[in-house]
Amino acid sequence: MDTVIINSTPHIRSPRTTKHIMLDVVIALLPACIMGCIYFGWSALLVLALSSISAVATEVVWKLCQKKNFKQILNEFDYTSCITGLLIGMCMSSSVKWYVPILASVFAISIVKMLFGGTGKNIVNPAIVGRIFAFMSFTTIMNDFATELTNGTVVSGATTLTNLLKGTASDLTLGQMFLGINMAGCIGETCKLALVVGGIYLVVRKVIDIRWPVIYIVTTGLISAALYKDIAMFMPSILTGGLFLGAIFMATDYVTSPNNKYACYAYYLCLGILTAILRYATQMEVVSFCILIMNLFVPIFNKFFKPRPFGSKPIKDVIKDFFAKFAKKKEV
C-alpha cells in the first residue's frame, strides 16, 4: 500500500449504474418490437432500425459538436437515446415513409434532449415529443394504418380505438385485442402481452414500481367506463390504443416523473383521469398528449407531495392543530 487513497463514504456502492438500468429498459422493449415485426413484417423492422439508429447517431453528432472524443462518447453512452429511438419507432405504423421515423428521432433527441442538456435534464419525454412531432407534421401518413399483415389479413385504416370511441362496434374479441391479432395500429402497441412481459421484466429487475402503470391503466379504464356509463367499456378501453406502451414505458420514464412515491400516486391518478376525459372529449388517441401535459406539471407534484421527515408531528396532530387554530380564529 504505497499510495494513499482517500475515498468518500460510503466505501461500498451498489453495483447498479444508469447504464445497467437503461439496458434493462431496452431489453424490456424487445418482446414488443419482435411481436411487431412478426405481425407487420420487414417494414416494421426497418422503421424500428431507422428510428433507433438515427436517434443514437444524433446524440453522437451532438457530442462531437461538444468537442468530445469517441472514447468519452462511448463512456457516456447510456442507452437512453436508443430507448427514445425504439419508442418512436414503436408508436408508428409500419407503412410510414422512411423519412418520418428519422425526422422524428432527430427532432426528439436534438431539440428535446440535447438542447436541454442531455440525459436527465430534459423536462418532457423525448419519445413522446418525437411521436407528437410526427403526428403533427405528417398527419395523413401517420394516421394511415391500412396495411396487409404478414398473415395475409388486410386491416382497415382506422385503429380499433378510434372505432371504439366513435361508438362503432368492434369485431375483435378481448383476447385478440390483448394479443394484437388482426388489429390495426402501431408497431409496438398492438401486442399487449409482449408489453406486459416487458413490464414484468422491469418490475422484477426493480427498474419501475408495479404500482405506477397499474394505477394509470386502471384509472383510465374506470373513468372511461364511468363516462360511457357502461362497465363493459373497461377492458376494450385499456386494451386498445397506446395505453399499455404509454403506461409501462413512457409515463414511468424516470426523468419526467415525480421523484417520490406520494407525488407518484397523485401523478399517475391524474394522468389516468386526464387520459380518459380527453379520449372521451376528442375521440382520438391522446395518451401521448396526456403524458406530455402531465410531464410539465411534474415539478408542481414534486413540490406539493413530499414525504415528511421521520419524526415529524403525526398527521393526526397536524390536522388537530389546524382545526384548533381555525376554531380560535372564529372565536376572535
Binding site: I5, N7, S8, H11, R13, T17, T18, I21, E76, D78, G117, G118, T119, G120, K121, Y254, V255, T256, S257, P258, N259, N260, K261, C264
Partner: peptide, 13 residues
C-alpha cells in the same frame, strides 16, 4: 473504491 465519475442525475428517486 468508487472510481466511476458521477453521471447526471436521472431523477429515479
Amino acid at each position: 473504491v468508487n472510481v466511476s465519475n458521477p453521471t447526471p442525475c436521472i431523477n429515479c428517486g
